[in-house]
Design a protein around this nucleic acid. Sequence first.
DNA 1: CGGCATCCCATTCGATACTG
DNA 2: CAGTATCGAATGGGATGCCG
Lengths: 125, 125
Amino acid sequence: MKKENSTNSINARQLKGDCGTVFTLSLIGNRWKPVIIWRLLDGKMRYTELKKSINGISERVLVLQLREMENDGLIQRLIYPEVPPRVEYELTPLGLSMEPILEVMSAWGLDHMPQEQEVPIKVAG
Amino acid sequence: MKKENSTNSINARQLKGDCGTVFTLSLIGNRWKPVIIWRLLDGKMRYTELKKSINGISERVLVLQLREMENDGLIQRLIYPEVPPRVEYELTPLGLSMEPILEVMSAWGLDHMPQEQEVPIKVAG
DNA sequence: CGGCATCCCATTCGATACTG
DNA sequence: CAGTATCGAATGGGATGCCG
């Protein structure tokens, strides 16, 4: 809790804070976008690859989210004129710049999730 | 979850990352909760005070959000048996622990918002 | 003052079927 | 493979009225 400039601190928060968080959440504050970005942080991925790696998302919703994120400048869509078609999705620098946000959200979530966890990544051997 | 993939990095993000961000956003990933928390970071506030400070929120939604946040353990509701009634809302330690998340989201938002007008609200301190 | 209750709309979600 | 099309369900949110 910081109040370095106690003059008009509520106004400061109101003006400086809301718009920031609201804007950020307008870009990634929903069910799937953070997960999508999180995946793409490992590198570009093809559509089906993405779909399979995100458990529970429907095709329609995935496409919708990807289009919105593309319009928002978070990801780039790379189309290869091949047969069969190949499309890859890649984070833009803007999308990449969201990594710290996701990291801190992820860390908090893991810290405060109910029940166990801190699962020692068990990969099917 | 899928186990057919035995590569390490994707699985690492999948297990360590998603649940974290998804859980975090299930608590604050909507239109109003971040703003509410942001306000309460300055200290406890009364219901009406909160309502007036958050421009555009309806009573119904405000109450709904407050109740959810109370159930999630983010805020505490303090009822004073007076006439007229007085109710104050205060962040719990859990709620307070979200400050870094909001800070980073706010900072990112301010940095990347399309700013028609540069409004440097550097409150002189 | 601090709310619930009610009604209603808009957006989002999810599943399925189909296509270039 | 990488999407569209369609539809119905669920959820989020706004306006208003009433009440202890």
